[in-house]
Design a protein around this nucleic acid. Structure first.
Lengths: 115, 115
DNA sequence: CTTTCAGGTAACCAACTGGAAACTGCCGAC
DNA sequence: GTCGGCAGTTTCCAGTTGGTTACCTGAAAG
């Protein structure tokens, strides 16, 4: 968490870091992507996965990501309506970075508790 | 670029992602760490590496990172004084994540230009 | 004497953002 | 007939932050 995306600042052209952070930089974005990494999930499931993300932010983050082509949003014609979010191909390409962050974080946590 | 760290929000206890993002989430933090990944660098070198980062932000980012133990700051008793920043052990542990982000970004850029 | 450079700090501003809470429409259940 | 759940949206507020500009010390160069 703890990340914010600034609207005006766009990725520096040609900078790989910017290019990638443009997609996964944004408050809670990594968490959402991580939740989706194991398959499609519905809005309420995502909310339950990360209860500390407010509905408003969850919505705006999902809309952002949809617009950037990182995930797809499918409304099922059921009642009550069900909405499914799923990583697109582009979204799946981000997973190695997310996984790496999680791995490093895990190592840091272990280090904390062992020392 | 494009990244902000929120002061009040601290890492969720026990969440690897938070733990890691707490250290590398913050406007321009990844860029700074990337600059430092190949060895110690001085303030003005860092500024030249990333001219789009204002001095103020560069300073505050470096202070943050120093306080979190990600890098060390050494003032050399020369005149004019020289200051060297270097990744600590903790900082080096973050590099796999940074590298992964850069790799993913590179792949995305290639994809863009080829299609 | 003045300028330049290193490595910052201080002040001020405007912007973007996240949080909280209330409201919506539709349906099935109690 | 009203309660709850899904999937949001809207409004309002306040906080945090980054950018910009100006300013500081000390030494050396022109």
């Amino acid at each position: 968490m703890v990340l914010k995306l600034r609207k005006k600042a766009t990725a520096l052209p040609g900078c790989p870091m910017s290019k990638c952070m443009d997609l996964l930089g944004g408050c809670w974005t990594p968490e959402v992507l991580w939740s989706l990494s194991e398959g499609p999930r519905r809005f309420s499931e995502l909310r339950r996965d990360s209860p500390f993300i407010s509905a408003k932010v969850m919505t705006s983050r999902l809309r952002d990501l949809e617009q950037r082509g990182v995930l797809t949003r499918t409304v099922m014609p059921t009642s009550p309506p069900t909405v499914e979010y799923e990583l697109s191909e582009l979204g799946k390409e981000l997973l190695p970075a997310i996984r790496s962050i999680v791995e490093v974080g895990t190592r840091l946590l272990l280090r904390d508790t062992s020392s």
